[in-house]
């Protein structure tokens, strides 16, 4: 190969994101380059460091490509939080990913200018997995839930739950020991954390908008990208943006459906669907989170209201795409 790229991420190689997205994506790039690009994937932080460092590793060239969550470094990339606010995201991963990819060049990429952004996307609907059934807003009171992103944490607090922040690897243990009552994640993550064995109840939100999503980025070292010959750059470009976002979103949707079916088939697990009326109460309860976020963005000279409006519009536009 003419160019070897080191891709680094924090999940183990058995994870869906590795096996069903990053690996096929890399193989696709390799094939389309006629074997001139080779991508070595280093899972599970093999190249060293902790997940919050991944972005800097791409910026500094410690890795050539990284997959990470902007939320791993809270406060640093505020604009994408617009997608992570309560009841903004759509139900499907493809919807949210397309919305992210569409808005990325105009709304988000500026904050990631230290790297070459290959793709920004967001997963499908996140839901509440807990050992006590959550059928209404009242059931949330005092429930100890591990929250996935800062904004989802704010939302849980607004809903009356005790939002507990802890690293993902601690979740199964904390659940087994009753340290937390549940966790808020999309279906895709459930098997790897064995949530379906650890809790019995899964509360889904019907339709869109849904409780929350989390955003992801595939980032490339800038000098490495710019140093590529034009034809190889094109191979990368052809697999960036919308192309990669749709691949990722579809993977989350496909796994999400499969996992939901698997859990549904387990006799002791219950999937609870909230009614539309109930969801309306939840939306009202979390409205202040959105308002507080918009206000905090003002202090950073960011027009939060416009971001929220544009994200809502992009999600609506891609609802059936």
């Amino acid at each position: 190969p003419q160019v070897t790229l080191r891709m680094h991420h924090f999940l183990p190689p058995v994870a869906n994101a590795h096996a069903r997205f990053l690996l096929p994506w890399s193989k696709k790039v390799e094939a389309e380059s006629g074997g001139r690009i080779k991508i070595d994937i280093f899972p599970a932080m093999q190249l060293g460091g902790a997940p919050p460092q991944l972005f800097d590793q791409a910026r500094d060239g410690v890795a050539d490509i990284v997959w990470t969550l902007p939320g791993n470094t809270p406060g640093r990339f505020p604009s994408v939080e617009a997608m992570e606010l309560p009841f903004i995201a759509g139900k499907r991963g493809v919807t949210n990913s397309r919305a992210m990819a569409e808005l990325a060049p105009t709304h988000f990429v500026k904050e990631f200018s230290e790297v070459h952004t290959l793709c920004l996307w967001a997963h499908d609907h996140g839901l509440i997995h807990s050992n006590k059934p959550v059928r209404s807003l009242d059931d949330m009171k005092g429930l100890k839930l591990r929250f996935p992103t800062r904004q989802a944490g704010e939302a849980l607090r607004a809903l009356g739950a005790t939002a507990i922040g802890m690293p993902v690897p601690q979740v199964p243990e904390a659940l087994a020991q009753g340290v937390i009552d549940g966790a808020v994640v999309p279906w895709e993550v459930v098997p790897s954390l064995r949530l379906h064995e650890l809790v019995r109840n899964h509360t889904e939100f019907p339709g869109s908008p849904t409780l929350y999503t989390a955003t992801f980025i595939l980032a490339m070292n800038k000098p490495k990208y710019e140093g590529l010959p034009a034809d190889l750059k094109k191979v990368i470009d052809d697999n960036s943006g919308m192309v990669a976002a749709v691949m990722a979103g579809a993977m989350w949707d496909e796994r999400g459906t499969a996992v939901a079916e698997m859990v549904k088939a387990r006799p002791r697990n219950t999937i609870i669907q909230l009614s539309a009326d109930e969801v309306a109460k939840w939306r009202t309860a979390t409205k202040p989170v959105e308002e507080a976020w918009i206000k905090s963005m003002k202090e950073r000279n960011i027009d939060g209201q416009k971001l929220v409006d544009d994200v809502r519009a992009a999600v609506a536009k891609n609802m059936n795409a």
């Binding site: 060293g48 460091g49 902790a50 919050p52 460092q53 800097d56 590793q57 500094d60 060239g61 410690v62 802890m166 690293p167 690897p169 601690q170």
Partner: peptide, 23 residues
């Protein structure tokens, strides 16, 4: 396997984040 500047960048936060590991 990489280069000196890359290693230098690697050192910028690694010692801190390694020691700040919850486990």
């Amino acid at each position: 396997f990489t280069s000196l500047p890359i290693f230098m960048n690697y050192l910028k936060t690694t010692p801190y984040h390694l020691f700040a590991n919850y486990t």
